[in-house]
Design a protein around this nucleic acid. Structure first.
Lengths: 138, 138
DNA sequence: CTTGTAAATGCAAATCACTCGCATTTGTCA
DNA sequence: TGACAAATGCGAGTGATTTGCATTTACAAG
């Protein structure tokens, strides 16, 4: 059994979740994905790989994995949500409005400023999402 | 006829749009609103004020006003979109996860850093939305 | 001030992205 | 190895938003 599989199964157990084909499949798909797939795309990939998975389970599993802090949901405008495995470093997302491609943007300085700003207002950040719609310069 | 009404009508005409009760009503509601209402709330307010407006028209009008750059749509997670009149100064939004309240956060420094960062990647920002989910500190 | 006409609206039905109910299957743990 | 709650598949259900179509309306032309 490959180490990675074991790790993912352990990650699920650590989160107090049962280890099922479907969960391992979706989690590993997201760990390996270099793009940001939506639920339909994940369903297609999961089915291509091996198992029978239903769309309902994809949604249920994604919600559970997000709850467990293993993945992250990106709520976009006018299109279904996309998902990514939980990033080690916080980053924002840039959507190329012509190609639809999503680019990740690191922003340690912004994160710090934002945190100070929010705390100055008497809040603590639970999570944040920045979505930048941009066009490639030529 | 009050000056404000004239201005709004002119803003519509400038955008190449016909001036209708419904559009004026929704636009002025958003200009005056201190909160960030969603489509249902706007429908209720528009109907309370005077006219008969349908939900379909509220959605159609909001889309058109957004297209014209007169208002802005906030796409939230797990709840219907909210709207605000186009802000003079860019700002981000903080959602109080306990009360649901939306607070606006000005951040000129962040805007500058973000702009530089994105341009460094060869993009120009078309628009951006930052949504911070936060909890009030006690 | 009427009128012609395309654009805007209201209504109800449709769509889209999810979510849920329930019968069946499957991890887990004793 | 069994017992049982948790997870899944399927299909029906929801909530937010959109669309088709008949009717009304803004507004340019006369």
């Amino acid at each position: 059994m490959p180490a990675e599989t074991t790790d993912l199964a352990q990650a699920l157990r650590d989160a107090g979740l049962r280890v099922t084909h479907q969960r391992l499949s979706l989690l590993s798909l997201l760990m390996d994905a270099s793009d940001h797939p939506n639920a339909d795309e994940l369903l297609a990939r999961a089915r291509a790989e091996d198992d029978s998975v239903s769309l309902a389970t994809v949604y249920r599993t994604l919600a559970i994995l997000e709850e467990a802090g293993l993945i992250r949901k990106l709520t976009l405008e006018n299109e279904p949500a996309r998902f990514e495995s939980m990033p080690l470093a916080e980053h924002d997302h840039l959507v190329d409005i012509d190609s639809g491609e999503v680019v990740e943007i690191a922003s340690e300085e912004i994160n710090r400023i934002r945190k100070d700003l929010v705390e100055g207002l008497g809040y603590e950040i639970v999570s944040h999402t920045t979505l930048i719609r941009a066009r490639k310069l030529r």
